[in-house]
Amino acid sequence: MSYSSDADQDFIAQAMPAFISEAAEQIEAIETLLLELEEQPDNRELLDSLFRCAHTVKGSAGIFGLNRVVEFTHHVETLLDKMRDGDIALTPDISTLLLQCNDQIKFLVDTAADEGADTPEQKSDRADLVTQLQALTDPAAAADVVSTGGAKTDNTTVQTPEGGLRIWTISARFGPETFRNGMDPLSIARYLRDMGRVVSVRCGSETVPPLVNLNPESCYLSFFMELETTANREDIEGAFSFVLDDCELDVVAPETEGQRMAPCD
């Protein structure tokens, strides 16, 4: 569910340069770290830093609703996570793949505001990268994508296991009146946390004005959370029921990106 308004567009326009600049730094760091890792493939600290960079890009992109960046970077993050767990070792091929993925992330960030730049060729290249990533992290799923004749798109209709644990991505931008109305994003984050397991959560400080310009009673906060839970969409959106008039909320089940969950639970 998405609530767009002029105020939201203003918010995005104002904060987007900060996001692009921060993301550019992370992307540059990813490249440097990958090159360092080629020299020292067993360096755990480098791998952790690499994961954090990718994770930061994904989290910030989520706050801005840049779903193409979030979706693609998620696949990269999954591979990095398996490498951290020691399930997959860094080979020269994987290193090359990750560098190509980083270029793709850079492209998606640079063209975040320009849907037209995402040409069919770009989409096809990206789908190839995702297939290669999945071949490493989840060979069965990758085979499935190939057999269904192409890449996953926003309209994918993969079924999720019913009633099971699912990882929801929740992106919330709170309106300026939130605090004055007696509401608190922190309380909502706590409420969500208690519904399951928080895989990740990131609050965007790029959306907050510098201290010198801050009206401390206005709310500028937004967060992006990945929540593993058996709860359904209604339960999750319920956490926001008291702020919905003054909040932009996106709740997405990744397996059903772009598709509204049927209330069948």
Binding site: D184, L186, S187, S205, V208, P209, L211, L214, C219, L221
Partner: peptide, 16 residues
């Protein structure tokens, strides 16, 4: 005692 507005102060500091 801390709430979102308290953390927001430090987020604003991050943008100095």
């Amino acid at each position: 005692e801390v709430d979102g507005s308290g953390l927001q102060l430090l987020a604003a500091l991050s943008n100095m």
